[in-house]
Design a protein around this nucleic acid. Structure first.
Lengths: 337, 337
DNA sequence: TTGTAAGCGTTATCAG
DNA sequence: CTGATAACGCTTACAA
């Protein structure tokens, strides 16, 4: 390894080209309203190439008072619902000259706040949060006047938010069961502290209602702490009139449910139909899982678009955008026997 | 929204505390070798809190000539083998005060080079690359003297690299088949341009050899372009002596194989045993897939550790670190009938 | 059209 | 122990 020699600066370029530093800046940035003679431009560009000069973005950020960097706060990138979101964000960020910081928060407020401070110190231009544990981050963002767009939740009126149509997604899943002749339709879900869960339940109930099926509290299994599919199945199938169809909060839960059911000798979909949510894993299971597909990539992309738009136009009205979900019918659902 | 007012600077803090700007810097950084009176320190800290002052990391980076930021070049974060790696990297980066840029390259050299330039402009302290399409990035890194650690591939001697023990992983998978009595063991894999594929084939052959099973070229299915599991199965099972066990390059391929087999009426594992590689999706299938688990998280974490170590000590000898894989036996493998 | 010089917000050197 | 002051590398009026 050679001795670490410092990177060339615009000064070096200017000297080599025989011009001033501002001239270098002008040609490199194509500064509007400034005309540079062809000859000068050529000399500068040549010097840039000769020195393999890379402008120092740090210095530029300091001078321009913006970094063209944004941060993605994510619960956990290793959770399969997030990578596609991240990809959507990164794609549009990159296409617009922005660069992306990845921040895993594990849904812990402390971590969120810490990362918030770090990103504030780094002077990112804006933040996209894939779910927030509470309003702390929002408060800081407002106080510091930094744009924050929220994915899914919470739906704060002070910020742009992009979310999926959970009510309709849920509704369509249950309606699919109804059309297949099912009447005993269970829903297994997680802690309804989050609006997402509430909307899913809302869609579930609305579909039942529209189908003329009375809501049965015994068929709605909510887990406030850790989801225990085994327990849910136990209780569900010791009912006098057990379900013939099960709708879960996620693909992951649906897979657990299928495994338990198969282990107990039920056939899917002949004996029990199952629908998941997300479409992250649904195509991989055997039998392939019918599920409600969420537009994760589009959600990320849209969030990034809105953020970048807001950076250009801070006074644009707040946007709350609902993206459609789609029922994807595969092999885990069939006519009620 | 209030009018965008500028963030407070160390100057504001200094003025409020009635001290100089350097004093502020000293107390905030606990600059070693500098003693500050309790009284002064208290006043400064109070002013910091009163103004909700956040030091400008951009200005600091410019002055210190380092950013405490690193970049992760990844083929595609939406590919399930990478999120855990990213998590490993981010965890150790964060714990060491570094911040992570996420860069999807799609394995395209052009994109890699572009991102390389961007990250060079942003003066990141170092780069971790999760697979590189060729040596372009390496050349740039060497030229610019910026630390680059490579995950898996290519195994360039000029850089630190962290990789999984593919030979052993492959060997153990095949040996597991052997122990179950299988003699006709197929391997379906992708384009062997990459060392990873070569090592897997090496392990496959070595296990056969150690088991005294002659290598049969008909059982090794290599796809130079797109993998076509359907075709592989067709050819494999029209052999006079078809395989009773199939080892694939990835979990994803194993799942496709299982689906095809099941569709054709084979039972798994009764009729055909299957082993995958990665352990990203293996737990989702029914039957659950036996697979070679890769230490993705650890690989990411280790890469980040090495990078940070090298940042502290640039002259440390180059490290090539091989991490162990682990055979995880689940339900897709059984004794040969 | 090109050059000069004043920031941008820190850190770090050096007197006091 | 504290306070000036010079970098750090770029942008951007303002002059020329």
């Amino acid at each position: 390894m050679t001795k670490k020699k410092k990177a060339p600066t615009s000064w070096d370029v200017a000297r080599l080209a025989g011009v001033s530093r501002s001239t270098v800046s002008f040609v490199l940035n194509n500064t509007p309203g400034i005309k540079i003679s062809e000859e000068t431009r050529r000399r500068v560009l040549e010097a840039v190439k000769a020195l393999d000069y890379k402008p120092n973005a740090i210095a530029r950020s300091l001078a321009k008072q913006k970094t063209e960097a944004i941060a993605f706060f994510v619960l956990d990138i290793a959770n399969p619902v997030f990578p596609n979101m991240a990809r959507g964000i990164e794609d549009v960020a990159r296409q617009n000259g922005y660069t992306l910081f990845l921040c895993n928060t594990d849904g812990k407020t402390l971590r969120e706040v810490r990362y918030m401070n770090i990103m504030l110190e780094r002077r990112v231009d804006g933040i996209i949060a894939g779910a927030l544990s509470n309003e702390e981050v929002s408060k800081i963002a407002q106080k510091k006047n930094i744009p924050l767009v929220i994915l899914e939740h919470p739906r704060l009126p002070e910020h742009d938010v992009v979310y999926a149509d959970n009510v309709k997604g849920s509704y369509e899943a249950v309606m699919h069961f109804v059309e297949l002749g099912h009447k005993r339709i269970a829903h297994i879900t997680i802690n309804p502290e989050s609006i997402i869960v509430q909307e899913r339940i809302e869609g579930y109930k609305k579909a039942l209602e529209d189908a003329g099926i009375p809501f049965d509290d015994n068929l709605l299994k909510i887990f406030y702490d850790k989801v225990d599919e085994e327990k849910a199945i136990n209780e569900l199938f010791s009912l006098p009139d057990p379900p013939t169809a099960i709708f879960t909060f996620s693909d992951f839960m649906a897979i657990q449910v299928m495994k338990i059911l198969i282990r107990r000798g039920y056939r899917i979909p002949e004996d029990v139909s199952v629908i998941g949510f997300d479409d992250t894993l649904a195509n991989l299971t055997i039998p392939a899982l019918t599920t409600v597909s969420q537009p994760f990539y589009e959600m990320g992309a849209k969030a990034a678009e809105i953020l970048i738009e807001r950076l250009k136009n801070p006074n644009m009205p707040i946007q709350h955008i609902k993206l459609p979900t789609k029922l994807v019918i595969r092999e885990s659902t069939a006519k009620r026997r």
